[in-house]
Nucleic acid binder design. Structure first.
Lengths: 228, 228
DNA sequence: CGGTTGTTTGAGGACGTTCAAGTACTGTGG
DNA sequence: CCACAGTACTTGAACGTCCTCAAACAACCG
């Protein structure tokens, strides 16, 4: 493991949660894999052999149906562990994983990981917090899907990426719009139209570049206030 | 705590996972609350004061938007712990909780629970498994919402409640149809129509009573095969 | 600079919602 | 056990949202 990668790892909340010694044991037997954009890490139905941690880049968790339509459940970034559940429960993955950019992933073999989980209380305790955060992440998305329209979801998504302490903000979306659409659960064309629908509320966009004129106004459009 | 309740508790996978001694410490300071149908346990935005475990009955986790429309995120039944995340992270609830029937709930005060979590490795380890299961539960629902139509979701929901080892099955849905509709993310009227749409595929229903003539055929309608 | 991929726009259609009305349950009190 | 009231469910009609298909346009990459 390169010193640079180790530094990335040590900086994650997770590594700090479990402490240096446990991190050290976790890293033993693990290796770093560097992969180009659009690499498939695993497919739905595969049995997990590794626990993955994104050191740099982005990984998208996707699902697709029989008709070949595909959607993005979540995107994991720097410093995030992902798809622990399957590895811990020894059950097949529910999702496909694919890189959205050049990505470096720490691959921790599942067997020693589970063994360490059973014997090291700090690891278990840190995972409880990790999973509690995941629960809230997914519950938010389910609320989004069930209670918000497409443009309300976009409004909420933009607010998530904006600096909401300011009155207005402009930024560039980290993902391609097609990926944002898949994450929001709508067709790319509908995302375009959702941007148009938000225009009267002070949102202007040219491709991935977005400007929000009035954050408070956009929040009013987003349907309901997200707790915290 | 009544002996009867203790027996219910001891029978849960969770209690077995943490062992008698840890269960004992958990129960100390906890109490059982018996409540009629439609009792609100807490509201979105409240700060958690308890961790809840359903001893008998059913509790629905719900969300509603500014326009008053409401949806069911998940329903918890006998033996299940629910809404741990908020209590563990000391963050406000994302959901409302309401009983769907006469329900007995074990109320475990959050502070001692968190203290025990920090010092008892068995509790942390058991919660990791619990949360891993929750992750998969919610991921399944997100896949449902994003990839399946209303009648495909109903088909999948019925299959979940049927004895899929048999070729055909009939049963009575545990929840009112309005609650099932909210869980599936559709209007009650749409649920009625979804039942009609499944008729040609061997589903007959009269109110909550459902009969599936050909389980394999229904599975083909449900859109995609659920892993495991 | 040209090809490829990604985004926008338009038209038409499918799916699900809303509103309104009618029918069937369910539980309660007599 | 029945009648009745209240609630739950179903059906119809009209509407809205989002999807699909098709084509034009823009951005990106070598």
């Amino acid at each position: 493991m390169r010193a640079e990668d180790r530094k990335l790892l040590d900086a994650t909340p997770f590594a700090r949660g479990i402490g240096t010694e446990t991190t050290e044991r976790l890293v033993r037997g693990a290796f770093v894999q560097s992969m180009p954009r659009d690499t498939v890490l695993f497919l739905e139905g595969d049995m997990p052999e590794f626990v993955h941690l994104v050191l740099s880049g982005r990984v998208s968790l996707e699902a697709s149906d029989a008709r070949g339509r595909s959607t993005v459940v979540e995107i994991f970034r720097d410093g995030q562990l992902f798809i622990l559940a399957a590895a811990i429960l020894r059950k097949p993955y529910l999702l496909n994983a694919r890189t959205l950019a050049e990505t470096r992933v720490l691959m921790i073999p599942a067997d020693p990981f589970r063994a360490l989980l059973d014997e090291d209380p700090r690891l278990a305790r840190a995972l409880v917090d990790q999973f509690a955060g995941y629960w809230r992440m997914l519950v938010r998305q389910i609320k989004d899907l069930k209670l918000r329209s497409a443009s309300e979801r976009l409004a909420a998504y933009l607010l998530l990426h904006a600096d909401t302490r300011r009155r207005s903000d402009s930024f560039r979306l980290g993902e391609e719009l097609r990926v944002v659409a898949a994450r929001l659960g709508i067709a790319p064309e509908s995302l375009s139209r959702a941007f148009v629908a938000l225009r009267p509320f002070g949102v202007s966009s040219r491709g991935r570049a977005v400007a929000i004129a009035d954050i408070a106004a956009l929040r009013a459009v987003s349907g309901f206030d997200e707790v915290e």
